[in-house]
Amino acid sequence: MNSAGELAPQLAKFRPDLLRFARLQLRDDPLAEDVVQEAMIAALAGRRDFAGRSALKTWVFSILKNKIIDAIRSRERTVNLSALSGEEEAFEEAFDRLFKANGHWQRDHRPGDWGDPEETLRQAQFWQVFDACLNHLPENTARVFMMRELLEFEVDEICTELQISSSNCYVILHRARNNLRGCLERSWFGPGES
């Protein structure tokens, strides 16, 4: 069993990653610092619950996820999704331009082969690009997408939490994925095959 004295330096080592994870989702640096701080304190206080069933880092991240969820819940809930932001609207138009009138891919925009996923995920530079792409998502889109993919909420829970319809939720998640896909294609993988 770890003593607090042994655990603290290990936690400190994770801090940059924890912070990055929190920042991506909260887009509010002071708040991100706070939740990371709380998560680290909770990890120290609850170290006896860590039975080594998972990697230490995974365990600390699960604590952080809960802290982020609390922060999201206590913050203003209303998401203005009825009006698409200019950014979101521009994105929808860009997505439409990938297709011909009949709804099939334009020759130049047909998705290409991204190669071996594991090899990509091993590269430190890829993660910089990926973070930047997540940060470029319009705010509401990002919020829904990260609740789904990073915090692993079910769609129903997102709908309840943000008071949006499930069809709205599907549209937003689809938009987020295409936005990310386009960003990665531009910044990392290169254009699709024609």
Partner: peptide, 21 residues
């Protein structure tokens, strides 16, 4: 390819923070 790209996005999101290079 699009389907594989979507799988890739999910995999990448699942690793944010916990499995960096």
């Amino acid at each position: 390819n699009y389907e594989r790209q979507m799988d890739f996005l999910r995999r990448a999101c699942g690793r944010v923070g916990t499995s960096t290079a």
